[in-house]
Simulated scan of single mutants.
Amino acid sequence: MNAFAPPLPGCRILVVFGTRPEAIKMMPVLAALRARPGLRPISCATGQHAALVADVLAEFGERAEIDLGALPPGSGLPLLTGYLLTAVAGAIAAARPDLVLVQGDTLSAFATALAAHQAGIPVGHVEAGLRSGDLANPWPEEFHRVSIDAMAALRFAPTEAAAAHLRAEYGRGQILVTGNTGIDALFRARRTGVVPVAIAPGRRLLLVTAHRRENWGAPLLRIADAVAALAARGDVELVWPLHPNPEVRDAVTRRLAGVPRVHLLGPLPHCDSVALMRAASLLLTDSGGMQEEAPALGCPVLVLREVTERPEVVAAGAAEVVGTTTEGILAAAQALLEDPSRLAAMARPVFPFGDGRAAERIAAGIAAWWEARCSASA
């Protein structure tokens, strides 16, 4: 853990992130918290995706005031959960925050919320209220997000639908609809990125990402088989930036390395990922964040999962949920590629996840909560 000076008086907020998507979505929040008088954010990196988070911090000109170091490699979920719970508990004890702020549904977010709850520290949950209704999909994220919301004192819902889930479960409580901070980060990143591969003239770019734990193994190989079949069309090129986890990287590389018109890349800066989405004719992904970002860029989405906790993107006409069978993915992609009018209709930019000001609303909500808390204790 890095040494750091004791925070100044005011509302001390431990802002915790461990994965690349968490870090991207928390960077606008950090900036918004710093801009409000009386709020004192302290950034903390758990090390779940240590190298990827370091790249995000560098891209945003940030640093982690508390860095818990990289997680031990090769450990299963129970050991990683215990490790993170213990490490974050130490950070909470050192920082003495008035509020612990987590984002989304990762193992880092869950362990942090649990550590804060056990320490009697209020929890704020950014991106609260998402639900698939199935604890096995996505696994283990659905359980994480439900559990975090149960422990949270402040629930920042990205959409009205997410807020409705929270009201049904907890009553009105401290629920604020803010939009998604991923859109805040997207608006910043879209000004600077570059497409990292050259696509031959006359061919359309298809962007692929898949990394979720429930898709490891057979589902990931079926996705890779669909990519190989699409590449055989000859009029498209597929770009797949690979997650560095060996369960993903090694399996996909074994199946697709050397396949013509398939470009396997390493992890990219956020701004270059955004540039790829802007250039793509179609996105095939199991990523939650990309389901939020792509509609704002006018990039049609095929969701490589059995269910999505972001139904707003489907209702907006920007995405279809197609599952993970090779045949289903291939049929859905071929149908869109052969129907220009339908593809164009899906490519109209829509903004179901906000206007790029979510972080401001979160900071304002925390400031109001802190003022009320101080008034009550006066």
Rank of each mutant, 00 (worst) to 15 (best):
V53G: 04
E127F: 04
V100Q: 05
E127S: 04
L77I: 07
R34G: 10
A64R: 04
L107C: 07
A113T: 06
L84Y: 03
H117E: 10
A93Q: 15
R40W: 11
Y83L: 15
T112G: 04
Q103D: 01
L57W: 02
A162K: 11
A94N: 08
A119Y: 08
T86G: 15
V88P: 02
G61T: 05
D149E: 05
R145Y: 05
D67Y: 07
L33H: 08
E65D: 12
G69Y: 02
R63P: 13
F143Q: 15
P78G: 00
L85T: 10
G90I: 01
L101T: 09
P97V: 13
R36V: 14
L154Y: 04
A35Q: 09
G82L: 02
L135E: 15
H125G: 05
V102K: 00
N137F: 15
R96F: 03
E59L: 11
F156K: 01
G129T: 00
L79E: 15
L114W: 06
T106H: 10
L130F: 05
A163C: 02
L33S: 12
L80W: 00
A150D: 11
E141P: 07
R34H: 14
N137M: 15
V100S: 06
L84G: 13
L57N: 02
L68D: 05
A32E: 02
P122E: 11
A58Q: 11
P41V: 10
E141F: 13
T159A: 06
G47R: 07
T46N: 01
L154H: 09
P41H: 08
F143T: 15
A163M: 02
D105S: 04
A119R: 08
R63W: 14
V53R: 09
A35E: 13
L77H: 01
D105T: 05
E142A: 00
Q118N: 14
D134K: 10
I121P: 03
D98V: 08
E62R: 13
V53A: 07
H117G: 11
A152G: 02
L130G: 06
G90T: 03
S147H: 13
T106Q: 08
M151W: 06
L77G: 07
D98Y: 10
A163G: 15
E59V: 11
A153P: 09
G104Y: 03
C44F: 06
V126Q: 03
R131V: 01
L80A: 10
R63S: 15
S43M: 02
D149Y: 08
L130A: 11
L71S: 12
L114S: 07
E141I: 04
V100D: 09
A70K: 11
A109M: 05
V123P: 04
T106S: 11
P72D: 14
A50C: 11
S108E: 00
T159P: 06
G47W: 08
T159M: 05
